[in-house]
């Protein structure tokens, strides 16, 4: 695993390969944690990612950038874990323009969340066709809970770029998901 991280320095595409083991670990941890942890224990995606990191990586041998790579991979894995679960649940996508879709009486908030995730996932795919970098920024920020500097390190761009990407991607996704923009008062 550490070797993998080292390689990622040289070849950013190696990150893709990191996703599989992190995904498996996150999935395992998410299930186990929910099944047995004491009530009230916080299920925090970032906490899970950190734990996965410690489990999978020899932390003493990894520099800040390596850690950023790992987190970016974990963010991607987290996205997949959640999307897989949403699909397994048979959640219904709403299709575009329905971000504020109301719940029907039969629908639980979890159903709604699953549907929202699938919508976001689709929109992110469409965004990635236009700007893969912006899609990755959203992935890191939203699914990985990463800060702007962390995201910048992981994606090897400037924090300023991440900031603009984040602002624009959010605005684009908001519209893509049917959000209602209100003119300034």
């Amino acid at each position: 695993m550490t070797a993998l991280l080292d390689a990622s320095h040289a070849d950013p595409s190696a990150r893709e390969e990191m996703v599989e083991p992190v995904y498996r670990e996150l999935k395992r941890m998410a299930s186990r944690q929910l099944a047995r942890e004491a009530p009230g224990h916080t299920f925090q995606t970032t906490a899970l990612v950190h734990e996965a990191y410690i489990r999978l990586v020899d932390a003493t041998r990894v520099d800040e950038r390596g850690r950023a790579y790992f987190y970016a991979a974990a963010a991607q894995a987290m996205r997949r874990v959640l999307v897989d679960h949403a699909r397994r649940r048979g959640a219904q996508k709403r299709g575009g323009g329905q971000v504020a879709e109301s719940l029907t009486p039969e629908q639980t908030p979890v159903d709604a969340f699953a549907g929202e995730l699938l919508d976001l996932h689709d929109a992110l795919e469409r965004l990635a066709e236009r700007s893969p970098r912006q899609a990755r920024v959203v992935e890191c920020r939203y699914f990985g809970g990463m800060s702007i500097p962390e995201t910048a390190r992981a994606l090897e761009v400037s924090p300023r770029t991440v900031k603009y990407d984040w602002a624009m991607a959010r605005a684009w996704l908001f519209r893509a998901l049917g959000g209602e923009a209100v003119p300034a008062p």
């Binding site: 299920f43 995606t45 959640l82 949403a86 699953a114 699914f143």
Partner: peptide
């Protein structure tokens, strides 16, 4: 919008599915 992943609902999703 996209402020933070809702850990609670994420957890519920993983568990319920």
């Amino acid at each position: 919008f996209l402020g933070a992943l809702d850990a609670g609902r994420a957890a519920a999703l993983v568990e319920e599915s």
